[in-house]
Amino acid sequence: MKFFKIGSLPNLISLGRLILVPAIISLIAAHRWKEAFICFIIAGASDALDGWIAKTFDLRTQLGAYLDPLADKALIVSIYVALAITDVIPATIAILVVARDVMIIGAFIVSRLLDKRLEVRPLLISKLNTLIQILFAALVLSVEAFGVHKGAWFDVSLYAVAGLALASLGAYLSQWIRHMSA
């Protein structure tokens, strides 16, 4: 029974990523930037690793289909909120990242409550959005960890994160509206 394979390696890696989230946030709060950066890189690498293992060795489970994105969202949302609270990034970016996820999750819940179940399948724009959010967070943490100057790339990256978050939200909401109208 694939659903209850909590002990499968990809699921254990996703659980490990979830466990890293409070550690990373604590390190950010303590301004221990190098350690936060290293833990974040480990968490990011674990995301790629668990997906590769699940696909390559056919270890995909229904639990993993929920656990992996949950770990991703917990990591991204927490990092952006922590970076905003420590005044490393503008609060508006953190609010946008969090609001996007809350709206998508809210739409999914409404679909289930109205018995119009929606299949959970990430869109290409969403995957790009997640990649850019992770890369931006890694860059910001590396700037803080190694004292690199924030140049023009920082502002360009902020706009890229904001633009992709909005584009991804628009794509999901458009899909959800079509689904709910059918």
Rank of each mutant, 00 (worst) to 15 (best):
F3N: 13
I6M: 11
I6P: 04
I6F: 11
G7N: 14
G7C: 08
S8P: 08
L9D: 08
L12D: 05
I13F: 01
S14K: 01
G16W: 01
R17D: 04
R17N: 10
R17E: 06
L18E: 03
V21L: 02
I24C: 08
L27D: 00
A30D: 09
A30E: 13
H31I: 03
R32L: 10
E35G: 12
A36E: 00
I38G: 00
I38A: 07
C39Q: 01
F40H: 05
I41V: 15
A43D: 05
D47I: 06
A48I: 10
G51T: 09
T56V: 10
D58G: 10
D58E: 14
R60K: 15
R60P: 01
R60A: 03
R60Q: 12
T61S: 11
G64S: 11
Y66W: 14
L67F: 03
L67G: 08
A71Q: 04
A71F: 00
K73T: 09
K73A: 06
K73F: 02
K73H: 07
V77W: 04
I79W: 01
L83G: 02
I89D: 02
P90D: 08
I93P: 03
A94W: 01
I95Q: 13
V97K: 03
V97F: 05
V98Y: 07
V98C: 12
A99H: 10
A99L: 15
D101E: 14
D101V: 06
D101M: 06
V102P: 03
M103R: 11
I104C: 06
I105R: 09
I105S: 12
I105M: 14
G106R: 06
S111L: 06
L113H: 11
L113K: 12
L114T: 15
D115K: 15
L118K: 10
L118G: 01
L118H: 05
L124V: 15
K127G: 13
K127V: 12
L128R: 04
N129K: 14
N129M: 12
I132M: 12
Q133H: 13
Q133L: 12
L135N: 03
F136H: 02
A137G: 09
L139E: 09
V140L: 02
V140C: 07
V143D: 04
E144M: 09
E144D: 10
G147P: 00
G147S: 08
K150M: 02
G151R: 07
A152L: 12
F154Y: 09
L158T: 01
L158Y: 09
Y159W: 13
A160H: 05
A162N: 04
G163Q: 12
A167V: 07
G170H: 05
Y172K: 06
Y172I: 09
L173E: 01
Q175L: 15
I177R: 14
I177A: 13
I177H: 13
R178N: 14
H179I: 11
S181C: 11
A182Q: 15
